Amino acid sequence: MRITTLCMSTTVQRTAVFDRINMEEVNRSIHYRLDASGKAVNAARVLNQLEEHCAFLICPAGMENMDEFVMLAKADGFEASIIPVPGRVRECCTLLEKETGRVTELVMDEPACTAEKDKELIAKAEKRLRNELQKALKKSDALLFAGTTPKIWPEDFKVRVCKSACDAGVVLLVDFWGKELLSVLEVCTPDIIKINAKEFCGTFCKTEIADTEKLIRAVADKSRELNNCIVITRGGDSTIGAFRGKTYEAPTERVQAVNTIGCGDSFSSGFLYEYLKTRAANSDEPDIESALAKGTWCAARNAECEKVGTLYE
């Protein structure tokens, strides 16, 4: 199996562990770790743990500190095309509190590039990225495209990427929402839309739907309308899936959580992997129940680890 993952918000993840965090005091960590991250980076790591060399990662990286990201990516054994762009790789800091089990993530977005020379470099980087993607799609069974796209890239970037994947005939899983997703749907339909309940309601509904049965009906209706698969994760609550209008619901696995950051990305990897596997074995008809179970298992294993986006430390 071969899956291309595309991450436009490449990240250096700093995970710091504390006994307890006191907001009005100096807090010293017990230890901390550095990892290559970003939604599709996390997904690629999990895919490679499910099947060696399964994932091929494409991502831009800010030239000012890209050496650090490249070093971390190499340590994880990524097969990747990392494309230099102006600016910095963004940093995220995960804070884990052992005493309470609480976790939070601080995201420091990369600054926008406004100089004319930067714009020229970004245009060249975009051309290279799209060429790399076209080559990768020819060898891939699927494209997993997840996360935000920084404002340095053209507004229609996601639309053109998704259209390329659909035209190439590969399975397309997207994990983004709102205007970006609606813009894509005006041009093409991803095979799988994986978002959380708040994102689904924010994209397709006028108000948030708190009632599970109403949410299931709404997801089923949208899946039937789009003739695709929609998967809605809900944290510790059951996961809702719909495939061409047929609905599914899968319970989450209860674990002693260490770090829940990256659980959604790990779920996406497991779901897509099993979706492709069962689809190939069953005349292009995926087994959604098995895919939900695999995604749930991957998310649970990630929650048990300090490292973000992984099945094991």
Rank of each mutant, 00 (worst) to 15 (best):
L185Y: 04
E213M: 07
A293R: 12
V161F: 08
I230M: 07
C205W: 03
E79T: 06
E105M: 15
L47V: 02
K119I: 05
S140F: 01
A165H: 08
T296L: 04
T278R: 12
Y273I: 02
A250E: 15
T5Y: 10
M71L: 11
A44T: 05
E225D: 15
I3M: 10
D35N: 14
I232M: 08
E110D: 13
T203L: 06
N282L: 01
Y248W: 12
S81D: 06
L57E: 10
I192W: 04
N27C: 09
E116A: 15
T11M: 09
G295Y: 00
N227I: 02
A73Q: 01
L47S: 09
A242G: 06
N302I: 02
A220W: 00
G77F: 04
A293E: 08
I216E: 09
S283L: 13
A210N: 14
E289G: 15
K277H: 07
A250T: 13
Q256E: 13
L276W: 09
A43G: 07
K246W: 01
S290K: 14
I261S: 04
G147S: 04
T310I: 02
G262H: 01
C305S: 10
K307A: 02
A75R: 10
L121Q: 13
A210Q: 12
V26N: 12
K117G: 06
G202F: 04
Q134L: 11
E126C: 13
D141G: 13
I232F: 06
P86S: 07
P150T: 02
D265K: 14
D167Q: 14
I209W: 02
V17Y: 06
L276Q: 06
G270L: 05
N65S: 05
F78W: 06
G178K: 11
A242L: 01
E126L: 12
K39M: 11
